[in-house]
Simulated assay, not measured.
Amino acid sequence: MKARFTSARWGRRATSAVLAGLLTVGALTACGGSSDDSATADSGGAPAAQYDAAAKSGGDADRASVVSPESARASVGQKLVRRANLNLKVDSLTGAAQRIRAIAAQQGGVVVTEELYSGEQAHDTSGTMTINVPATSLDATIALIEKVGDVQFRNTSSEDVTAAYVDTEARVKSMTASVQRIRDLIAKASTVNDLVALENELSQRQAELDSLTAQLTNLKDQVAESPITISLSTDDFEAVTAPGFLSGLKSGWSAFVTSLSVLVTVLGAVLPFVAALALVLVPLLWWLRRRRAGRLPLVAPVAQPAGPAPPSAG
């Protein structure tokens, strides 16, 4: 009896041990499978969401790597856009324009615009020229132009664009790095969805980069070159523009003469048509009047009433 009880007890222990071993092996297998799946997910291609997160975080990383505005301004120096305006009274308009063109070529500049006007009289002439010269030669060019005639007016101005220059340049560098990062991600894309999403992002950033590059180029051109506008006249600018009774009278008379000339021109243009209409309408009206008069009925003379008969003689 005792031996039978011992044998049954050992049988139960053996069964329990086997079950415990199986459970342990199953747990280890499950852990190993999850570890393999995790490793596979980490080693495989990143999904589109990870590409998008990496692409969008690139701009933040670029902005974080940009130096401070103070350091950037110190590195590029001060950027100024300089301009000048001159009014000159000259003896000969064409001669002064020729000398200004020569000065512009001598200073390494170009003539942007040139407008010369000639009036009815020889002294009634004026004109405007605009030239672009290197900013470093602006003062020397102005000094040479002042010798062309008598300076009636002079104005120079400077605009500080250092902040805009530094900001645009930093944004160009940041966007250039961002575009390159998107290109690298496109080379590593593993699915069509990832490729489409990254190409859309690349097109948007490339368009923004092109716009920023154009703005930076424009700023560089404005800083590198200075425009000079020269107004030329053979008359005194002050006498032409000075207000007063004589100036108003001259302007009024000029307007009256102009209006009278326009009126005479209009009358001369209309007169042939009026004459042609008169040749047609005058005979027509005369004929209609004669016809109407012929159709009027003749009025018979009105009979006078008879008076009382005279009395007969008895």
Rank of each mutant, 00 (worst) to 15 (best):
240 V>D: 11
192 V>A: 15
58 G>F: 07
159 E>V: 13
2 K>N: 14
133 V>D: 04
311 P>F: 09
69 P>H: 00
119 G>W: 03
66 V>L: 14
268 G>K: 07
232 L>N: 02
231 S>D: 12
16 S>H: 08
182 I>Q: 01
293 A>G: 05
63 R>E: 11
83 R>G: 11
136 T>F: 03
86 L>M: 07
6 T>E: 09
126 S>R: 13
227 P>I: 07
215 Q>L: 04
182 I>V: 15
128 T>C: 01
114 E>C: 03
177 A>C: 01
124 D>G: 01
231 S>E: 09
124 D>M: 08
314 G>K: 07
180 Q>D: 15
163 A>M: 03
171 R>G: 11
231 S>F: 09
141 T>N: 05
95 G>P: 03
267 L>M: 10
248 G>A: 15
141 T>E: 06
207 A>R: 07
305 P>H: 06
291 R>V: 04
1 M>D: 12
70 E>P: 00
201 E>D: 14
149 G>I: 00
113 T>K: 12
224 A>V: 03
116 L>C: 04
48 A>I: 12
187 A>I: 01
35 S>W: 14
84 A>R: 04
77 G>Y: 02
243 P>V: 03
146 E>M: 06
302 V>F: 05
257 V>I: 08
175 M>L: 15
200 N>D: 15
91 D>H: 05
139 D>R: 09
36 D>M: 13
240 V>A: 14
259 S>P: 02
31 C>K: 13
133 V>W: 05
160 D>V: 00
186 I>P: 01
268 G>S: 07
56 K>W: 10
75 S>T: 11
225 E>W: 15
63 R>N: 13
60 D>Y: 08
54 A>G: 04
29 T>N: 07
192 V>W: 09
3 A>D: 13
112 V>M: 06
259 S>D: 14
173 K>H: 06
